[in-house]
Amino acid sequence: MKEKMFAAFAANIKTMESLRRNEVKYVPGVLRIEKVIVLSAADYEKLAEDISPEYPFLKNNRTLMTAQPGGTFHCLLVTAETEQEGMLFALTENTLYTGRAQNVPGMELQGIPVERIALEEPKAYQEHAVFFHRARGLDDITGRDVHRPVPERQTSFRVELAVVLSDAQFRQFKECGLMEDKLFLFENSSRMWFDPGELCWHCLLIKGESSRDGILVEAEGYAYARYAAHVPDCGRLRLKDVPVRYEPLARRPEHRKSKGRDEAR
């Protein structure tokens, strides 16, 4: 029977140097390593200098990790072939706990799966947008028209629903249809509001079935895009668990045979 391993973790630190210098507040826990991730020496140093929960390898292994401060931490151990040191990671919904393993070769790791990877850069998410009041179309919200409406200041936003149009419908909507009444805006008015306390727009994302860009809309109770912002790349938005509504002419992805639980009716 394996002996229990213990470790100390710090929440949401930015570099390993702060752990090495003991400049952080720790929480103790029982350590259970679920997988070993092996990086190149260069990638290990890069990660050590810029720790972030947005790295793809952390997201891809999220189901292996749990954290109970004072209890058990189910972790990834990240190291390099030439390193004595290792990084311990336990990612929860809002917190990345990081610990330091000072002597990886001396740890009992028999039977634990090992994966060798190249470190992928974390995705740079778009967190803020500039909304325009009563914009007519894309020229008004991308700066092409010098007579465009005055924008609101750049603030944060949260997508509450993604609405997928056919590519033709989306092209018409963004080019000249922002002031037109739309049933999908009227029917989802409760999903759109501005939170003055957090300075956050709760909005819909309107996009085409194959478009890269999209339009954020806060209709303020109306059936047209009373406030709108342009998003150049929808792939940079945080859309995990955001429900999706497909308009009648929009084609659903072929792999979706039926409506999933995350698809809005």
Rank of each mutant, 00 (worst) to 15 (best):
P56V: 00
V242K: 06
N61A: 05
F194D: 03
A7V: 08
P28G: 09
D213C: 03
A124P: 07
R226G: 06
T79R: 01
E85A: 15
E17K: 11
L88A: 08
G143Q: 03
G86R: 06
M179P: 09
L237Y: 00
G71E: 08
S210Y: 13
G106L: 11
L109M: 04
P122V: 06
K2A: 15
T142K: 01
P53V: 03
D213N: 04
A129W: 10
V36L: 00
V38I: 04
F170G: 07
T155L: 15
R134A: 13
C176G: 11
L239G: 01
V164T: 04
Y125R: 05
P28I: 01
G71H: 05
G70S: 06
R251L: 04
A67T: 13
P56C: 03
V217E: 01
M5H: 15
R148H: 06
P243W: 02
E17P: 00
F73P: 00
A219D: 13
V164L: 04
A41C: 06
V163F: 07
L76R: 03
L91H: 04
E187C: 13
G86D: 11
K46V: 11
S166A: 05
L249W: 08
R32F: 11
P122C: 05
S190Y: 13
A168M: 03
T72R: 13
K14S: 15
Y224W: 07
R148V: 02
F131M: 01
R245S: 12
P113A: 03
E54K: 09
A219K: 01
A118H: 12
R238C: 07
A250S: 06
S156M: 10
A48Q: 12
K182G: 04
F73S: 02
D262Q: 00
V159Q: 00
R238H: 11
K240L: 12
Y125N: 09
I13H: 10
F132H: 14
G29E: 07
R32E: 14
S156W: 12
I206R: 01
D140W: 00
N60R: 07
I33S: 07
K25E: 14
R252E: 10
R191F: 11
K257Y: 14
I215T: 05
G71C: 02
E121K: 12
D50G: 06
K25S: 14
M192A: 01
N12G: 12
P151C: 00
E180D: 14
N60S: 08
P253K: 02
M107A: 09
E247F: 00
E81T: 05
G106V: 07
E85K: 13
E180Q: 15
Q84S: 15
A7G: 12
S156Q: 07
A118V: 15
D139F: 15
R62V: 04
K123D: 06
